[in-house]
Computed example of a mutant assay.
Amino acid sequence: MNETIHDRIGTLVQEYGDGKNTVFANKIGVSEGNIRGYIKGIMPKADVLEKIVKTLDVNAMWLLTGIGHMRVSNLDISAPVLISDNDRLATVLQQFDVFIQKKDMQIVQQAEEIGRLRERISHLEREKGKDVSDVQTSGIANVG
């Protein structure tokens, strides 16, 4: 029943919004159209997921993966994790690993670009310094 994040958001609408998208949307501070879209398959953005987790005290792991209990208050940290949950968790973590690797590559590219820009700025500052020293100045103001 709660196979996808879209299904889980639908469950949250039932639980916290009495089955009404508008009520649920008002509780977390987003539009009803967004909630409708999330249930139909549009991927919610991180800030919306954060609002759900923080506003409603929903277990983020459950919301993202379906693993564990829906409510944070129902979590039992002493309970053993089931093998099937570990398998599902490993799959989710592998997906995050690919995402993290892509972000790492972007960070490296951005760091290289920052280095090039710093070099360019330094070069321009040196050129500007030369240009300024080449300008001849007069001690008499030319007032017209």
Rank of each mutant, 00 (worst) to 15 (best):
M43D: 15
F96R: 08
G129F: 05
K103I: 15
K27C: 10
G66F: 03
N21P: 04
I67D: 00
Y38V: 04
T22M: 06
L82G: 07
A141E: 08
D104K: 07
V53L: 02
R8H: 04
I5E: 01
E127C: 11
V108C: 03
K20E: 09
I107Q: 07
H69S: 13
G139A: 14
S133C: 07
I52F: 02
G41L: 13
I114Y: 08
Q94P: 01
V132K: 13
D134N: 14
M70K: 02
L93A: 05
T11Y: 04
V72I: 15
A79I: 06
R8M: 05
I5K: 03
G144P: 14
G66W: 01
G68E: 02
S78A: 11
M70N: 01
G33Y: 11
V72L: 08
G68F: 02
K128V: 14
S73E: 12
N74R: 10
I114S: 07
R71A: 15
L82M: 08
K27R: 14
K27W: 07
V92C: 04
D87F: 12
I39G: 00
S78W: 04
E119F: 05
A25M: 10
I100C: 04
A46V: 15
T55H: 11
K103F: 06
P80Q: 11
I52K: 00
S122F: 06
I52Q: 00
K130N: 10
R71V: 05
K54A: 11
F99C: 06
N59Y: 08
